[in-house]
């Protein structure tokens, strides 16, 4: 039996009589790349905030890395990484300083920070830029760097909220290579995206419509089920029925 790092059972978030997340249930295995799809306003962000320990569920239960989202949020936070659609490193700190800062915030020891950052900078070929301000880097590099920082403290799971928004196709491809590497090293990837080609890269994808999880399977199976050869078509068929839109 594969180790389950995220277990979700009837997870619900209610604002008044509005169900942002409506009884969703799913599991994610260790090392899996799990695509979390849905139109804007479908409830992806709300669900993700609960799983990251930023918000309490109204009902239902979920565990992340074995800890409950109801009362063990602090333990969850120690075991996850997070990267959002907004670029989120400090522009007026250098690459090294950003790494040191976020490593420090996660309590990584000074020795580990030094060793890992040396390796990271070498792997990314950033030796010359290490002391440059992050603000002066091109967007693609920034996003790759932000991803590296989000897994710098070796989390069990990393949540990526539309990580490749506004990035060119070549860099996106490189970005996904990094995601594969992370997955191969045992980090579970939980990623939301609007790019259907990226959805194809995932092991399994789920599609949320109006707060409910309407589909959950591998991209190949989903295409088979909806009798089409493109993920675009699958998404369109599912999301067409949505009554909610916008954020």
């Amino acid at each position: 039996m594969e180790e389950k790092v995220i277990v979700c059972k009837d997870l619900t978030k209610q604002f008044g009589d509005f169900y942002a997340v409506d009884k969703i249930s799913f599991d994610v295995s260790k090392g899996e790349i799990f695509g979390f799809l849905g139109a804007n306003g479908a409830g992806k962000t709300t669900a993700m905030r609960i799983l990251c320990g930023l918000s309490y569920p109204s009902s239902g239960e979920a565990t992340v890395a074995g800890f409950s989202v109801r009362n063990q949020q602090e333990s969850i936070k120690k075991n996850i990484g997070y990267m959002s659609q907004k670029f989120s490193l400090y522009e007026n700190l250098s690459i090294l300083e950003n790494i040191e800062f976020f490593g420090g915030v996660y309590g990584v020891s000074r020795k580990d920070i030094r060793e890992r950052s040396d390796k990271l900078i070498q792997d990314m070929g950033l030796q010359k830029e290490a002391k440059k301000m992050v603000g002066s880097l091109p967007l693609g590099w920034k996003q790759k760097l932000a991803f590296s920082v989000s897994i710098f403290h070796r989390p069990k799971i990393v949540f990526l909220d539309e990580p490749t928004g506004g990035v060119d196709p070549v860099t996106r491809r490189q970005f996904w290579d990094m995601i594969y590497d992370a997955s191969a090293s045992g980090i579970t990837i939980f990623v939301t995206t609007h790019y259907m080609d990226e959805a194809e890269y995932c092991n399994r994808i789920s599609v949320m419509v109006d707060g409910k999880m309407e589909a959950l399977d591998s991209p190949a199976n989903l295409k088979k089920r909806y009798a089409t050869d493109s993920m675009d078509e699958v998404f369109y068929k599912l999301a067409r029925g949505a009554r909610r839109s916008g954020d």
């Binding site: 990251c52 602090e74 959002s84 400090y90 976020f102």
Partner: peptide, 10 residues
């Protein structure tokens, strides 16, 4: 957007 990262951190 760094505040989000900080809030998600321990």
């Amino acid at each position: 957007g760094t505040m989000e990262i900080l809030l998600v951190s321990p």
